[in-house]
Amino acid sequence: MTGHRRPYPVPRKDQWPAAQQHDPTALVRYALVHDEGRLVAAAPLYVVDTEPNDLYRVHEVVPGQEPGRVVLAGSRRGYVNAPLLHPRLAPPRRGEALGRLVAAARSLAEAGRARPWWLYVTDAAAAELADACGAAPVRLNEEARIPLPGGSFEDYLAGLPRARRTCVRRERRAFAEAGYELRTLRLSECADEAGALAAQLQARHHHPVDPGFMAALLREQAEGMAGTGVVHAAYAEGRMAAFSLFSLHAGAVWLRSTGYDYDRLRGAHLPIEYAYAHGATAVHLGMESLRAKTLRGGVTSALWAVAGGVPPGPAQTVTGPAPSSVG
């Protein structure tokens, strides 16, 4: 078993939106709220006519909705979403700033005869948005997070029930005995291989996607994220058998994509040692396969949709400069 190690830059907060803004399936605008010259709130707003990702098709994930143009507020591809609000805003000013973001999403939706939605928002964000939008949240899914107590992998294991500790050790032993060559790579170095395995995973979860499309999507992410995404990959006989793509942000490791060759993969491997080595206190594992994640120590929290409330009508073309500003 061998490995390749190198330092990686920490992602800036603006790099994920930058990685998404050139997606040809949506037109992006930005709502910015200023208070006496200081930026206090922001939200990307995506005007979407055609959504290739079925988990972001509102009419497929929210009961009772019809197909049509939508404005997606906040993150469009991250599956964990919340309005960007300055952490030191006092409650009244926070509510006012959030109201400005909601109004901007409604205004853009009204101009394009679309319906605004905030998708996959966290519990706390859903409660605030429900007040600001005047709409009850709709539960969409759950996100899994593994808390990391102490400072080592053994501390993580100690927090698991005895039977689960045995299973995790067995999985890691099988992974080690398979003799994989382990590599730590930049996404730009392996996007095509990773895309092919990510497509296999999507198909396994009943979300069929073309491997070429997945590879192109990962290449776009690599460019937009300026090389800050980290890929841990296992190779067998010179071919990638599994990978995980993640970023280190806000004291946690965020898993962005995974993929497996199910005919060749043995055992399991999560980036927990990497997280401890970089001082992270949690690993966010995203949605899907929640039982498998909870068995490895994951705890789940709900993700919600909140409607903005503008009724659809005849579609109009939305134009204007890319950054929009309110307040």
Score class of each variant (00 low, 15 high):
residue 1 M to Q: 07
residue 3 G to N: 14
residue 4 H to D: 14
residue 6 R to F: 15
residue 12 R to L: 14
residue 13 K to S: 11
residue 15 Q to N: 00
residue 17 P to T: 07
residue 18 A to P: 00
residue 20 Q to L: 15
residue 20 Q to A: 11
residue 20 Q to G: 09
residue 21 Q to D: 14
residue 21 Q to Y: 13
residue 21 Q to G: 04
residue 24 P to Q: 09
residue 30 Y to A: 08
residue 30 Y to I: 07
residue 31 A to P: 11
residue 33 V to N: 01
residue 37 G to V: 03
residue 38 R to M: 06
residue 43 A to D: 13
residue 45 L to P: 03
residue 48 V to C: 10
residue 50 T to M: 04
residue 60 E to A: 10
residue 61 V to I: 15
residue 62 V to P: 03
residue 62 V to C: 04
residue 63 P to V: 08
residue 63 P to Q: 13
residue 66 E to V: 09
residue 66 E to A: 15
residue 82 A to R: 10
residue 83 P to Q: 07
residue 87 P to R: 13
residue 88 R to G: 06
residue 99 G to M: 05
residue 102 V to S: 00
residue 105 A to H: 04
residue 106 R to A: 09
residue 108 L to R: 04
residue 109 A to K: 06
residue 112 G to H: 06
residue 112 G to A: 15
residue 114 A to K: 00
residue 125 A to T: 01
residue 126 A to F: 12
residue 129 L to G: 03
residue 131 D to W: 12
residue 132 A to E: 01
residue 132 A to P: 02
residue 134 G to L: 08
residue 137 P to Y: 05
residue 140 L to A: 10
residue 141 N to V: 05
residue 141 N to F: 10
residue 142 E to T: 04
residue 144 A to I: 06
residue 146 I to G: 00
residue 147 P to R: 12
residue 152 S to C: 13
residue 154 E to I: 07
residue 155 D to C: 10
residue 157 L to R: 12
residue 158 A to D: 14
residue 159 G to C: 13
residue 164 R to Q: 15
residue 168 V to K: 05
residue 168 V to N: 02
residue 171 E to M: 12
residue 174 A to V: 01
residue 174 A to K: 13
residue 178 A to I: 09
residue 180 Y to P: 11
residue 181 E to Y: 09
residue 182 L to D: 09
residue 187 L to Y: 01
residue 190 C to Q: 12
residue 194 A to L: 07
residue 195 G to F: 02
residue 196 A to N: 07
residue 197 L to T: 12
residue 201 L to R: 11
residue 205 H to Q: 12
residue 207 H to G: 02
residue 215 A to K: 01
residue 217 L to P: 00
residue 225 M to E: 00
residue 233 A to H: 00
residue 235 Y to C: 14
residue 237 E to A: 15
residue 238 G to K: 08
residue 238 G to W: 03
residue 242 A to K: 04
residue 244 S to Y: 08
residue 247 S to Y: 10
residue 254 W to G: 00
residue 256 R to K: 13
residue 260 Y to K: 10
residue 261 D to H: 02
residue 261 D to L: 04
residue 262 Y to Q: 10
residue 266 R to E: 13
residue 267 G to N: 06
residue 270 L to E: 05
residue 276 Y to F: 14
residue 280 A to N: 09
residue 282 A to M: 12
residue 284 H to G: 02
residue 290 L to S: 09
residue 300 T to Y: 11
residue 307 A to N: 01
residue 323 P to E: 08
residue 325 S to F: 12
